[in-house]
Design a protein around this nucleic acid. Sequence first.
DNA 1: ACGGCCTCCTGACGGC
DNA 2: TGCCGTCAGGAGGCCG
Length: 273
Amino acid sequence: MPELPEVEVTRLGLLPLLNGLVYDVKIRNHSLRWPINPDLKKILYRQELVSLKRRGKYLLAYFSEGCLIIHLGMSGKISIVNKKKETIKHDHVDILFKVGEENKILRYNDTRRFGAVIWTDKDPLCHKLLNSLGPEPLKDEFNANYLYEKLKLKKQFIKSTIMDSNVVVGVGNIYASESLFLAGIKPQRQSKKIKKREVVELVKSIKVVIKNAIEKGGSTLNDFYSVNGQSGYFQNDHKVYGRESLGCMNCNEKIYQIKISQRSSFYCKKCQI
DNA sequence: ACGGCCTCCTGACGGC
DNA sequence: TGCCGTCAGGAGGCCG
């Protein structure tokens, strides 16, 4: 599920845990992408959750003495539950908080276990997983001049480049196809051959696509508490992703599906040059 | 340094 | 019904 918008929606959903004190940690399965620190319970005990930030698709839970870096991988979900809620398959981690008079549990579920829960007592932005990340797509540092300079050096396909988190964070497989469609650029164009005026469109498109998705996700934020963190933005709204052999929403020509670096990519041969 | 490929893992789905 | 291949929203790591 999680592309950047989903992670941002998750972050917002966790805000009610702020200022909570950890009184227990339960780890049912340590083997995520990297093994969870076996001392995590000892480490987090009595620490306060001070702030919740996001960098790309990484969720940063700052505690009094360090930071928990959480990545949702392909199938990770976080929800807030209470003690009565029974665990289901793949509920790997619970962090139990006392927030004011209430007990609240942060529950991490991840079917495929490509996600990560990493403790660091240093600045998480200096962690090797985060220290070379590119700009956030919605910030001004991500602009046409910046991207054009990056693309100038790149031989790879444009779709691969915009999905490279060292170029810009948060553009996943869906939004890469969607942004390129909106910008009128074929996913298999060589990056260095994209004209400046096309880069201007591409940057605009990425910002629009990401912003829309966050808004959609935000509109289902109420579900966060009641169900299990899943939000509803994901379903429709895709102009090309998953629409192979259907009619293009602009011109009605058929949408093609190709593989680029093993990932499905969708585009319209007529609308994208 | 770069880019392309493989990999981790579970589950859903389609074809035979 | 079952078995097998393929595919899935990520991204680090390895190799040429």
